[in-house]
């Protein structure tokens, strides 16, 4: 696990491609949607999740067991990928995986804010980012938000968090802190990327992700009609929106939909937008956005077979798999029918 040395994409890609073959397909999902939580856990025990299910099986049960096993498996797989990669490859992959650091920081802050048990917070963490176990332990032991910021003092999150802390003390809501963490992550995501062609492809994928995130946020705000300043949720780095255009478009759903339809993503998101107009369902739109990103990632992985892109493509597919299994387990717990659950899944 180091940024020294020359990149070794061949090795990492060979391992990742082998693992990709063991991801669940249509057939498995169809089976899973017809199982109860206990059966899903047993099914997972016979797949690549066996180690996690066995390790956690004595302490947790039911849907919680599935959820924690998924988190832990995700963390282990992504940690392993970082472990294998060297040189510039490490930097490119770590950029994307740092989103789990951001997630962990936010989870810890929420835990402190709500006075949650340390062990409860711990199980919700996904240890896939760059933070080592020691830092995570210290984060968990922090008993105030000030303490959390102190632990983060040599990371990119410290400064924005300190900036947002005053606002948090004034208003008592977490939004400024969480926005600060997100913004620190996204700013670092796109800064100083190298110039060769596969890296440019990777960059355009990251830009698309930022654009899609902005589009969903804007749509949510526009539909909720809440009195929130959309500019506060704006993420820098995208192509599609600027801070002011997002603020203006979030006032009016129709205008926003038209704007997205006319953009460079119009072709990929066209069906989703039509569905949004017809069925008036934001969930379908969000799933369509996820599917578009995943398809984009798949395509990315085949254009330059020996570069960072197939690895990113696997990371996306794996993330999507855990989200799908989680959706199935939670849906089963809530008593949804197999058909309803299937409509919640994103399968390409």
């Amino acid at each position: 696990m180091s940024a020294a040395g020359s990149p070794n994409p061949e090795y990492v890609i060979a391992r990742v491609r082998a693992r990709r073959g063991s991801l669940f397909g249509d057939e498995e999902y169809r089976k899973l949607t017809r199982m109860g939580p206990a059966e899903i856990a047993r099914f997972m025990e016979e797949s690549s999740y066996d180690a996690e299910i066995n390790a956690l099986g004595s302490r947790h049960g039911g849907v919680d067991l599935i959820e924690y096993a998924l988190n832990r498996n995700l963390a282990e797989q992504f940690d392993a990928i970082l472990d294998w990669s060297e040189g510039s490859l490490y930097d490119l992959i770590a950029r994307y995986l740092r989103k789990f650091d951001a997630w962990n920081v936010k989870t810890v802050i929420r835990g402190v804010y709500t006075d949650a048990e340390q062990s409860a917070v711990e199980t919700d963490l996904i240890r896939a980012g760059e933070f080592d176990d020691r830092r995570i332990r210290r984060l968990l032991e922090a008993d105030s938000i000030d303490g959390v910021i102190e632990v983060l003092e040599d990371t990119v999150y410290e400064e924005p968090l300190r900036g947002a802390y005053a606002e948090f003390e004034e208003t008592g809501v977490l939004v400024p802190l969480e926005n600060a963490v997100d913004r620190a992550f996204y700013e670092r995501l796109l800064s100083g990327l190298g110039g060769d062609e596969p890296t440019r492809q990777y960059e355009s994928f990251l830009v698309a992700e930022v654009d899609f995130r902005n589009a969903t946020n804007a749509l949510r705000l526009a539909r909720s009609g809440a009195e929130i300043d959309p500019a506060a949720y704006f993420i820098e780095g995208g192509d599609l929106f600027t801070r002011s255009s997002l603020a203006r478009l979030a006032q009016n759903v129709d205008e926003l939909v038209e704007y997205i339809g006319d953009s460079q993503y119009g072709e990929e998101l066209g069906p989703a937008l039509r569905e949004l107009a017809e069925a008036d369902s934001l969930i379908a739109f969000e799933h369509a956005i996820d599917a578009a990103l995943l398809a984009y990632g798949d395509r990315l992985g085949t254009i330059y077979p020996v570069s960072v892109t197939p690895i990113i493509s696997y990371i996306l597919a794996k993330e999507r798999e855990t989200e799908n299994i989680r959706a199935i387990a939670r849906g089963k717990e809530a008593g949804l029918s197999p058909d309803e659950i299937e409509s919640e899944l994103v399968i390409t």
């Binding site: 090795y11 060979a14 391992r15």
Partner: peptide, 14 residues
Amino acid sequence: RGIGSAAVGAMAED
């Protein structure tokens, strides 16, 4: 060099 590192990676998985 390239093929060998890919082969070792594949062997590590299977």
